[in-house]
Design a protein around this nucleic acid. Structure first.
Lengths: 195, 195
DNA sequence: TCAACATACGGAACGTCGTTCCGTTTAGCA
DNA sequence: TGCTAAACGGAACGACGTTCCGTATGTTGA
């Protein structure tokens, strides 16, 4: 997992570096809420009380910072998958519940969904992190639901996550559009018995 | 229709202005294909052999230029709607065929789908143009299909177009994801008889 | 406790881009 | 042919991402 190296635990960091990394994570989290994940680097640096170079030193790309900020939530999402599969009645229901948590995660983070499917190289590592951590989990849920005959194989795990991610784009700025409703329709389309 | 005012036909333009506008539309179309709709303004100006100010004089926002370039295709898409409804067996089939043409349009224009659901104010007019011209058409198709009992009312015309547009984002850069397949699932989810 | 060295820092500097400004050119017309 | 309004082009400005480099500081071994 390359993203684990983003803020290296190896060697030993100087105490000031440790402090600055913590301050940066706090500042970035706050700025992401206020101004979205595309917030200017200088704003994060200012809020953290450090110079811009300090950001680049610890987080070479913007995606590294974004990943670090949301690492815990991505991780818990990844662990929700097997848990839901064990505790929920049907695999399809577990998949639906998991997707619902994924949506929750995305729609509450200003611009994160857009960043996820952005072609901007600055966000490549973000995409990669989501893919490597969450696609396998989605794959398990999908396989279980398919084995139970509850859904078709019209979409693979990657395509499904990407579809859901895309449907979450721009949900914050338009009340005529509800990502959750769109995803519900998408999932309904995966049920067998249609075409 | 506000976009008709973008390149005003009223008054009379000087001949050089007329020429430059034509050159800009050509240059922009070419650059959009090569570099996407987010191509730097200077690149378009250079290719057209004009100064940057000339772009801003005729197309105050980037969206105005994008709309002008694709105006004919948007228009013909709008006219396809009623035509398909008249010539296709079922309203649902007409809707599917129309959506398919919409997808064709979006996936062949580098970055257009992303620009459409972008929150960047530079693309506001683009969004507005699509909404004002295409949502009503989609609404007709949707209403007909609904009246025939072929689809549910889970998504309104705006939400459907937005969903399809979102699903088309990033399709050019990733062969693990196929927008057409995702939209097919979405449409399948609109069929009655599910939840 | 103190040097000396690697680590880390901060802000200036550079290149790119969107946008505006302004002195100059030119088309249209009498 | 000369006048005027329309239009032009490129310089200039500000915001931003990114890199550079001289300076400061924590760590470590004596």
């Amino acid at each position: 997992m390359p993203s684990a190296e983003t803020v290296p635990t190896r060697g030993r960091r100087r105490a000031d570096a440790e402090r600055n990394i913590a301050a940066l994570l706090d500042a970035a989290a706050a700025e992401f809420v206020t101004a979205g994940v595309e917030v200017p680097v200088r704003d994060i640096a200012t809020r953290a009380g450090v110079g811009v170079a300090t950001i680049y030193r610890h987080f070479p790309t913007r995606a590294d910072l974004v990943v670090a900020v949301y690492q815990h939530q991505i991780e818990s999402l990844a662990q929700d998958g097997p848990a839901l599969l064990g505790s929920t009645g049907s695999p399809a229901a577990a998949l639906a519940a998991w997707v619902d948590r994924f949506i929750d995660f995305l729609v509450t983070k200003h611009g994160l969904a857009a960043a996820l499917s952005s072609t901007d190289p600055a966000f490549e590592a973000l995409h990669a992190s989501f893919v490597s951590r969450l696609v396998p989990v989605c794959g398990e849920l999908l396989a279980a639901a398919r084995a139970a005959g509850e859904i078709t194989d019209a979409l693979g795990p990657y395509a499904l996550m990407r579809s859901v991610g895309n449907l979450c784009i721009g949900t914050e700025s338009d009340d005529r559009y509800d990502a959750r409703a769109a995803v519900a329709v998408l999932l309904a389309g995966l049920r067998p018995g249609g075409a």
